[in-house]
Simulated scan of single mutants.
Amino acid sequence: MVERTSGSHHKGGSRKMAKRNTICAGIDTSKDKLDVALDGSSEELQVKNTAEGHQELVEWLKRHKVKRVGIEASGGYEQAAVAELRRQRFVVIVFQPIQVRAYATFHLQRAKNDKMDAALIAACTAAVKKIHPAPDPRLQPFAVHLTMIDQIKEDIAKLKNRLESCPDERIQKFWKEQIALLAKHRRAEFKALVAAIRKHRDLAARLDLIYSVGGSGLPTAVAILIRMPEIGQITREQAAALTGLAPYDDDSGKHVGARRIDGGRQRLRQALYTAALPASFRWNPQLMALYSRLIAAGKGHKRALVACARKLIVIINAVVARGTPWVAEPPRTASVSVT
């Protein structure tokens, strides 16, 4: 552990710390170490990114009466530290790198190193006005498992491309065997994942609600459950934005640009876009009507599918919020004739 402190004689830091009711810390993460800084203070810490280092970090934060901790997402290297901090009841905010760099740009800060980044993240943490609830910790191992299943699917696609361009029959046979083996593993892993989810009654009930929506097959329903824990607790606009399916304006002065989707959770967006094709052609009457209307209005196939994918997540969000399974059409009110 490497700790540096200036004590109470650091007047500028003391005044700034006194102005804040909530003491905030920032953590810059790398594979081997964590650099930590306090907002409004020159005190800093460096520990190893290990279980022992995390314990030292917790003790140091408690000693300085830190309540809120910000940490930058770093390819998964931050996950163990985040889990431990949340277990210790700290309020943890995980920033995307683009958020931290945008904050630095706003303050015209060009210099960059690990210690400076930790201080910058601490300032970002203190500036946050709205703090979202921490995601369900049960979903984290499911997310890792689902990513592995997705990666197997990607490997199968790569092998199929190699198979198509390979003229050698012996090598073709090898690629076919590998594809069959990976496909078998993928089916087994997905079955195990669903079984693990169904051990939790509340998660199983939520999965069934998502699965009830026409066009949301079981793989899509699992992806939404795991990769969008906010489902059913947010607005339709927020649901579209989180999935990266919300169209954004590109207007300035007299310029009126085309609206485009951007951002969001990439793997989740891919799952919804994949589901939108069969849903809008066969399984969901609402999406079928939407697709036909957009095509008739001159919209392209891909643009119509994006709109259907957005409509699909909006429907699913409403179903989960309501807590009752989806029905293709609302029940008709029985008419009573008076004679």
Rank of each mutant, 00 (worst) to 15 (best):
I27N: 10
I27S: 06
D28G: 12
D28E: 14
D28N: 13
D28S: 11
T29H: 11
T29R: 13
T29P: 13
T29K: 10
T29A: 15
T29C: 14
S30Q: 06
S30V: 01
S30D: 09
K31H: 11
K31F: 07
D32G: 05
D32V: 03
K33H: 13
K33L: 08
L34S: 09
L34Y: 09
L34K: 06
L34C: 12
D35K: 09
D35T: 15
V36W: 04
V36T: 06
V36D: 07
V36Y: 05
V36M: 07
A37K: 08
A37P: 13
A37W: 07
A37L: 11
L38Q: 10
L38F: 08
D39M: 10
D39G: 06
G40H: 08
S41K: 08
E43V: 06
E43R: 14
E43K: 11
E44A: 11
L45F: 09
L45T: 07
V47H: 01
V47Y: 00
K48I: 03
N49Y: 06
N49P: 08
N49V: 10
N49D: 10
N49W: 07
N49T: 11
N49C: 08
T50R: 05
T50G: 02
T50V: 03
T50E: 09
T50W: 05
T50I: 05
A51M: 08
A51Y: 03
E52D: 13
E52P: 00
E52M: 09
E52W: 03
E52V: 14
G53E: 02
G53K: 00
G53C: 01
G53D: 01
H54A: 11
H54G: 15
Q55W: 06
Q55A: 07
Q55K: 13
E56W: 00
E56L: 07
E56M: 01
E56I: 00
L57F: 03
L57A: 04
L57S: 02
L57E: 03
V58G: 00
E59P: 00
E59N: 05
E59M: 02
W60T: 00
W60E: 01
W60Y: 09
W60G: 01
L61T: 00
L61M: 04
L61F: 02
L61Q: 02
L61W: 01
K62L: 12
K62R: 15
K62S: 13
K62V: 01
K62Y: 02
K62I: 00
K62H: 08
K62N: 13
R63H: 13
H64E: 04
H64T: 00
H64W: 07
H64R: 15
K65V: 03
V66Q: 01
K67R: 11
K67A: 14
K67Q: 15
R68Q: 14
